[in-house]
């Protein structure tokens, strides 16, 4: 039987990851990384937020993108679950609705990598010249 992974293996992996990360600057300050929040309340989970979050994690892992992916509660957009919030370093956060795998893929390809906004944005939390 193959050896079962332990925390010791994690320590070893951490060392290689640390050197990998320090090659790219700004890695140890989370606010300088891409931040993704997945809405994970009953409404989100029932609509497949777990699959969306797993997919995002796997895809970011596969493409070696440094990001911080965390969970958040219901943002009040139950009609458009699963919803995610994407914040690029130095930019305002953007909330996307109906994020199944295909849209998550688009968001990673175009928003996170190329910096272009994608269809499916939920407006409402943004500051406009009037409410600033």
């Amino acid at each position: 039987m193959a050896k079962v992974k332990t925390l010791e293996d994690l320590k070893r992996m951490r060392e290689s990851l640390q050197s990998e990360l320090s090659l790219r600057e700004n890695s140890d300050t989370p606010e300088k990384l891409v931040q993704i929040k997945v809405s994970m309340a009953t409404c989100g989970i029932a609509s497949g937020a777990k699959e969306t979050m797993s997919f995002i994690m796997e895809e970011l892992y596969r493409r070696k993108i440094d990001a911080v992916v965390t969970q958040t509660g219901c943002m009040g957009y139950c009609h458009s679950e699963p919803t995610i919030e994407v914040q690029l370093p130095g930019a305002d956060p953007v909330v996307y609705g109906n994020v199944k795998k295909e849209r998550a893929q688009l968001i990673i390809d175009q928003h996170i990598i190329a910096g272009k906004l994608v269809d499916g944005i939920i407006p409402g939390i943004y500051s406009t010249p009037d409410n600033k």
Partner: peptide, 16 residues
């Protein structure tokens, strides 16, 4: 404790 300053929310750590 095993991670030091690497974020636990990093996709690679999550997969591990």
């Amino acid at each position: 404790n095993s991670l030091e300053n690497v974020s636990i929310s990093h996709p690679k750590i999550n997969q591990f």
